[in-house]
Design a protein around this nucleic acid. Structure first.
Lengths: 153, 153
DNA sequence: CCGCACTGATTGAACGCTCAACTAAACCGC
DNA sequence: GCGGTTTAGTTGAGCGTTCAATCAGTGCGG
């Protein structure tokens, strides 16, 4: 209020639009590939990945939500779907009676193992193959800076 | 098939996850702010922006879909909502009887004008304020390279 | 140890997006 | 100018996400 808007100059404008176009195209492409080849959206793939990396392939719902950058509600809905697909199962948390543990089933692990090669290949083709090693490094620094900036505020 | 998967090395893995986290956090934040302050999702904001920049504030549906990087179907659904809100109106195309023109109404322009300062401020705060001028330049080059790579394939 | 705020998780409604199917009009070759 | 293909745009069903409301269980102050 009262303070002048700091509009984007032409360079910033160009950067912002390029970023929007590129990140949307990248995500849309990967999402579509994953849906076509493995019948799961990218968000579900990420859930399975995080579970597969966790001790005993299990995580508290809250921790899983945090790890995948999603809301609790979103994760609850997703977990319901994943459970219906037989890819995860839910268990009561032994130390907190409010808590639930999401557990990756063998079927779920197999689905992930089947999906991973194609998806990783997609990430490589659509992202890394297009960039020089220096650009990959720049992208990492930029992304880490942004992630800190966004979650720290 | 038969070809070994080119898995991501640790550096690439870290880059990819940081990118996922950052771009998701950025988009989610901006989307939520826009929804809260201007009662529109980011995709609709972009449609209004493109229309506001077009001659006579009107564009063919196809061109608008292309400009906003969305499918025709998505744009049709969005246009129906925007028309119901009174922000755009649809006219028949004079040169192609299959065509439709989306036209930004005065009400729509006013809604955009009201939303823009807050949104631009958000883009600046959440993105540009966090990066050095060199990083902004790097991000522009990376994004333009990626956009070319993705739409050119 | 009681009351109250907070945390963990789920639910249902509303909404936006995707995909496939469809209509209508334009274009193209002959 | 006729038939087949392509292009423009819409539609409806199904799915995933958001938001607000809700419920159960925990933890803290007094």
């Amino acid at each position: 209020m009262g303070v002048m808007t700091r509009w984007l100059n032409p360079d910033e404008q160009r950067t912002w639009r390029a970023f929007l176009t590129a990140s949307r195209a990248l995500m849309d492409t990967l999402d579509r590939e994953l849906q076509r080849d493995a019948d799961m959206p990218h968000a579900y793939y990420e859930i399975l990945v995080r579970l597969s990396e966790a001790p005993d392939r299990r995580l508290r719902m809250s921790d899983l939500a945090e790890a995948t950058g999603s809301s609790r509600s979103r994760l609850s809905h997703a977990a319901a779907r994943l459970e219906a697909a037989g890819w995860i199962r839910r268990e009561d948390c032994p130390t907190d009676r409010r808590g639930q543990l999401a557990v990756l089933t063998d079927t779920g692990f197999a689905a992930l193992a089947a999906a991973a090669p194609g998806h990783v290949e997609g990430v490589r083709r659509h992202l890394f193959d297009a960039l020089s090693p220096a650009q990959v490094d720049q992208l990492r620094r930029i992304s880490e800076t942004l992630a800190d900036h966004l979650t720290g505020s």
